[in-house]
Design a protein around this nucleic acid. Structure first.
Lengths: 338, 338
DNA sequence: TTAATATTTGAATGCGCTTAAATAAAAAGA
DNA sequence: TCTTTTTATTTAAGCGCATTCAAATATTAA
């Protein structure tokens, strides 16, 4: 183990001051070109490693941000994380990750840890139960915030969302056009704004079509395949089973499709199933999923950009913080059986 | 923004030294009970936040480790990450994540960054091309290493792997028993040890059964659904299409199943398909996937534990670093058509 | 040649914490 | 009462870097 080489090691060996060395390594114009080269060369040759902790202690900037999502196993969040990662990489920020799993305590513990690390900020898809006070507390402690996919009412923190109401209205309209009147909703929770918005979009579509909602089964589940799979048996037990199932996410929809198949039913032929999100998998699953592209990668990117801007003290890019959804009609929906 | 309250703020207000305050907050027996309580109370009341950067500068321990995997979008790694996260949480370590995507440069850049942050160690599933020197360099710079899912030949760094050779032999034996002789292999790369091991296991099974391998198509692809989906058309074009497709991962297998369905073929009826890994999704996909449980969550857990032990200076738990695989026979395999 | 200005470097300081060594205070023993 | 032990607290010295600000040197103008 080579003895640690620090700035002063280099400075000493070269007979300059640490100040000069520091400035040289950061390409300051205050230091002569020749000196700079000598210093940089020496640093490289002696295996110098910049100590960010020391620098950070001095500058009170850490180049660390927190990323908090519900669960990275969910492709929705995994894909968002990817776009965040890309964006952070561009400005050389690293991130500490936390899956809160809608456990508020876990989330807030992690936030405390972020503050201890002197994180510059946090990109968060907040847990159910997160309050305005939680957010305020972060900002007061120097943790800049940017929110993604879920918001918290009553703050003006940059928050990037899909337009769930509009999106869910779109799928519902599509199903109505196909003749479906008895539609089950599977997945999500009315404890989240997202869940409520989707329900509202559903009702919008019916109202717009001058139809009464006579028969709606609403099953709240987690956003995963298994939940969708299991919901099927519940649905098929109903006195009047639906002719279409509108899911709150693609993962749920894929679970539903598999569950139906288990019961001998094929989505897109015997029954219609829609997803939501348009994850990578949607287009290659079978049948290819009719779903809504909610721009989740885009909101991830924008949330990251907003945070970076805030950290740099730049103004946050103007423009809508809500992404327009797009209906993707594929093979999992079909005409309602008469 | 309240002015920063530090140890010395508290010490000053209470008329004690910062040393006492520091010791008190960490429950040192060196400080009187009454004093400790006073200090803790004050700290709480004044909103004191422990500054880890300062502490870390002093102690040269950061409580940060790096986690490097190929791609977190892959459920195999996402599930491994989860078990790592759980394990790290138990000893209050945070992690910086990096998806290298088999880009060596990206990986090594990140490793450099970890050193700058003074990370205690790194849990890595190394990129293709990682050399023994790369690993040595990390250790020499104080970055303790523990490897998972992939190894690097020629080091005695704790490395936790599935037994891919044994596992792939198991699926192959299963397929042979079902009467399959013309089996295609899809996914993976012989550039990785994993890829080579699987191929060896495949050959083991044939040799053991005293069969010649007369007809094997080996398609190297990334480990994702799309790759599996696309490989199908290639396979179906063959003069002698296989009666079974053994995939290198469950994700590939699911892609293959969907691809087959696109061509009107149903896995588990017209053709057999096997996966590998036994990710959560395997059991609820349809048909439920015949696959090998390779204990990936377990190796994640063990790799994390090993690293933690090393960081604490404790001996690394003894015992095998290779997990015994287990064959999971489900519905995606069936007798070979005559 | 001198004065004025621009360029380059160095010494000192502090960021907030930990820790070994030193000191002070209290308790116990003689 | 005076030591000796024991217990409680403080002093002081960094950890490695960035950042004034003043000093030294080089450059130009007068």
């Amino acid at each position: 183990m080579s003895n640690k080489v620090t700035l002063s090691t280099i400075a000493l060996e070269l007979g300059v001051s640490t100040a000069t060395a520091s400035l040289a390594l950061r390409d300051s114009p205050l230091v002569a070109e020749k000196t700079r080269e000598r210093i940089k060369e020496k640093a490289l040759a002696s295996g110098y490693i910049y100590n960010r902790r020391a620098a950070s202690l001095r500058t009170s900037k850490s180049d660390i941000v927190g990323v908090i999502v519900r669960d990275i196993i969910n492709p929705f969040f995994a894909e968002i994380l990817h776009s965040i990662e890309d964006e952070l990489g561009l400005s050389r920020q690293q991130f500490l990750l936390c899956n809160h799993g809608d456990n508020l305590e876990l989330q807030n513990n992690f936030i405390g840890t972020l503050m201890q690390f002197g994180a510059d900020g946090v990109i968060i898809s907040p847990s159910i139960g997160t309050t305005v006070e939680d957010i305020k507390m972060m900002e007061q402690n120097g943790l800049l915030v940017s929110m993604v996919a879920r918001g918290v009412e009553g703050t003006d923190i940059p928050t990037y969302l899909g337009d769930d109401r509009a999106g869910f209205r779109m799928v519902t309209e599509h199903l109505i056009e196909l003749g479906h009147r008895n539609i089950a909703i599977v997945g999500g929770s009315t404890k989240t704004s997202t869940g409520r918005e989707r329900r509202a979009g559903f009702e919008d579509a019916f109202r717009e079509a001058n139809l009464e909602i006579t028969n709606v089964t609403d099953i709240e589940t987690p956003y995963d395949r298994k939940a969708g799979y299991q919901a099927v048996s519940e649905i098929l037990k109903l006195k009047h089973p639906p002719t279409a199932i509108a899911c709150a996410s693609d993962t749920v929809a894929i679970g539903v499709i598999n569950g139906l198949r288990h019961h001998g039913l094929e989505a897109g032929r015997d029954i219609s199933v829609t997803g939501y999100d348009d994850i990578d998998e949607a287009v290659i699953s079978s049948p290819a999923l009719t779903t809504v592209a909610d721009g989740h990668r885009e909101i991830g990117k924008r949330a990251a950009r907003a945070l970076i801007a805030r950290v740099k003290g730049e103004p946050v890019e103007e423009g809508s913080r809500m992404i327009k959804p797009q209906l993707k009609i594929r093979q999992s929906t079909t005409l309602a059986a008469q």
